[in-house]
Write a protein that binds this DNA or RNA. Sequence first.
DNA 1: AATATTTGTCACGAATATGTCATATTGAAG
DNA 2: CTTCAATATGACATATTCGTGACAAATATT
Lengths: 230, 230
Amino acid sequence: MPANILVVEDEPAIQELLALNITQAGHNAMRALSAEIAQKLMRETTPDLILLDWMLPGISGLEFARILKSDGLTKSIPIIMLTARGDEYDKVRGLEVGADDYVTKPFSPRELNARIKAVLRRRAPQMTDDPIEVAGLRLDPTTHRVTGNQKTIDLGPTEFRLLHFFMTNAERVHTRSQLLDKVWGDRVFVEDRTVDVHIRRLRNALAISGHEDLIQTVRGAGYRLSEKND
Amino acid sequence: MPANILVVEDEPAIQELLALNITQAGHNAMRALSAEIAQKLMRETTPDLILLDWMLPGISGLEFARILKSDGLTKSIPIIMLTARGDEYDKVRGLEVGADDYVTKPFSPRELNARIKAVLRRRAPQMTDDPIEVAGLRLDPTTHRVTGNQKTIDLGPTEFRLLHFFMTNAERVHTRSQLLDKVWGDRVFVEDRTVDVHIRRLRNALAISGHEDLIQTVRGAGYRLSEKND
DNA sequence: AATATTTGTCACGAATATGTCATATTGAAG
DNA sequence: CTTCAATATGACATATTCGTGACAAATATT
């Protein structure tokens, strides 16, 4: 089960390394160079796990962890701290503010992946896999099935991911490039307008269950999934 | 991220020194020799931070801070007080009226910059795009929706940005060229008069929720969003 | 290998937004 | 009450954004 993992690391080389590991393990990597950037990203998508460097420009890793853990919306997101080797003091303080685990730099990919897996498994029951229901639509991530009004809706892989994303981020407007990032992933060699085409395909598919105006276009901004059709 | 910092200091030499520090730190310095002048400047641009001298001719620094903190429009602007060395009494009273930090004169550039940075960082999380509510109007940047009196208000992209700007800078008069700068951005190839037209379009749209006189014209100056219709 | 499905791009018309002008209206000074 | 500049408003040509069908390349399925 692929998870969204947010990497907060200011050193580009290390960030790249971390992201590489994550994607190779079958997950999706979101990157931030600072806590501030991370906060911005999290407004769009809630990650399933955060890899947080101890040393950061601006808000430090420790501060950021404390901020996240004191906010009801984010406190359940597990955090893995990245600390310098052997700094036992940091380790303790990191765990104190609520980090779920820590990894010392330099780290081995094997170790890192093991810990990611462990943390995700620990919280797995509550996480994904739960069917989502929005506006009379039901999407089951495990069976890869979508139903609406007793009708089964057939979707291609891309349309499925697109709808999945819309349903987990309902009511919010997403620009085309945001959608490309979140739904298509790293393959940024795709034109913005391609999104339009897939939106149409998704709309067509949703039409058979009567969900005509579920995906709305916001001119000059992007698209939105919403029940209210005004 | 460059910030607008307002320096309120009556001693020219010190003011110059402060401004120099600020610009060298990559920020933009606005200067005022008194609280009165500062108020005038703030009618045009809202600073991100105010450096406020304790001793001022006319309205004192203490009074000015209290005024700023008791006004809904300005109370969220952080203030750093400049006090004479060792005047612990002033320090306490300064923080009492809502100053976010203080620096004792004579100060080291290093210390000053550190405190500026700290205060700006602390305030960063508040730069969110939460829904804004003004005068019974509600604008949500994430869902791109505007409502007033239970009615949904439909806006074109430009009108949306325009209203967004007005709502985040309510009660203030904006000249046409200021609006072109802030709302239109770089595209300066647009006539001043064009603003009039968009103002009208915005007014039309707001009419359906009964907000007739929300956008007021100030002859010879510009436009203003204000609840009071006088 | 043959066939079906999915995917990205394009072209073109439709829908909508934008900027400018000409003209009407307003407001303030004299 | 005039006069004049500033602003409001309607109309319109232009520009931009979207929706849609077609199509060929890439992938998966048989």
